[in-house]
């Protein structure tokens, strides 16, 4: 009985410690984001790795999403004789919801796991400690650069994803019917408002921030051993993905206040 109580208290203390540790990590991250000692060169490199290198994956996924969404929506709309609404309907779905969320989930999978595993293995092999000893601020160099890169690259990747998805949708529309690209974009853009564009960009900034913070935290404080690296990569993806949906729900509530 005593051992069960002890285990429970140990678990509770451990969780409280992790929460406190995360709080301090957040405070440290935000204070470092605005510091003048930022590693801009490393940030640019991370932007390249996170943004440019993820573009092909985001592009292919976006194109398929646009195509599939159009093909799936067409029968329902044609039942009502409203096939001409297809470009507007699909592009509104892409810009408001599918584009930002799919891009963020892809980044959580590819970038989040990468950061978690990279920082985790650096922590396990004590490279982070070595950096500290050599006089480099590991927090600024490893954590802040990646958080900034995630936060800035996510909106940019979403813009690419939106436009490529629309091209996929244009192809989907033209499989069964015939719509010129001019008419397609005219009817697609007629239903999109500035609120849709800006709310989508702002929320992806926060999605990026969430992916960056969660995955760097998981990697930076990974448990020792190879198991710890795997756990850090896994937790980065799972928690980031969950957080994306929670943030999306909050963003929809906030943007609906302005619409």
């Amino acid at each position: 009985m005593k051992s069960i109580v002890d285990t429970f208290f140990n678990f509770l203390l451990n969780q409280l410690y992790r929460i406190g540790q995360f709080g301090l990590f957040l405070q440290h991250s935000f204070s470092s984001l605005f510091s003048t000692q930022s590693e801009w060169k490393e940030t640019a490199k991370q932007c390249y790795l996170i943004g440019y290198k993820t573009l092909p994956l985001v592009g292919i996924t976006g194109f398929i999403m646009g195509l599939v969404l159009t093909i799936q929506t067409r029968p329902t709309l044609s039942d009502f004789g409203a096939e001409s609404w297809l470009p507007a309907m699909v592009s509104v779905s892409i810009v408001r919801e599918i584009g930002p969320v799919i891009t963020a989930l892809i980044c959580a999978g590819k970038v989040g796991s990468g950061i978690g595993a990279e920082l985790g293995s650096m922590n396990v092999t004590e490279q982070i400690d070595a950096m500290e000893v050599s006089g480099t601020n590991p927090f600024n160099y490893l954590v802040v650069t990646r958080i900034l890169a995630c936060a800035f690259m996510l909106p940019l990747l979403t813009i690419y994803n939106d436009i490529i998805s629309m091209l996929g949708s244009f192809m989907g529309v033209n499989i069964m019917g015939e719509v010129s690209i001019r008419l397609f974009f005219a009817s697609a853009l007629s239903e999109i408002s500035f609120l849709d564009i800006f709310s989508s960009l702002i929320k992806t900034f926060f999605f990026g921030l969430a992916i960056g913070i969660i995955s760097t935290y998981q990697g930076y404080y990974a448990q020792k051993g190879t198991v710890g690296v795997g756990a850090a990569a896994n937790a980065s993806v799972v928690i980031s993905s969950l957080l994306i949906f929670i943030l999306d729900m909050v963003a929809v509530q906030i943007s609906s206040l302005f619409s």
Binding site: C47, Y48, G51, Y52, L55, L156, L157, I159, Y160, D162, I163, F185, L189, I192, S193, F194, I197, L201
Partner: peptide, 16 residues
């Protein structure tokens, strides 16, 4: 990558 992305954003803002 950044320039093209921003160009698409500004084009979208202009057309909308």
């Amino acid at each position: 990558f950044i320039l093209v992305g921003l160009a698409i954003l500004f084009a979208a803002i202009f057309f909308v």
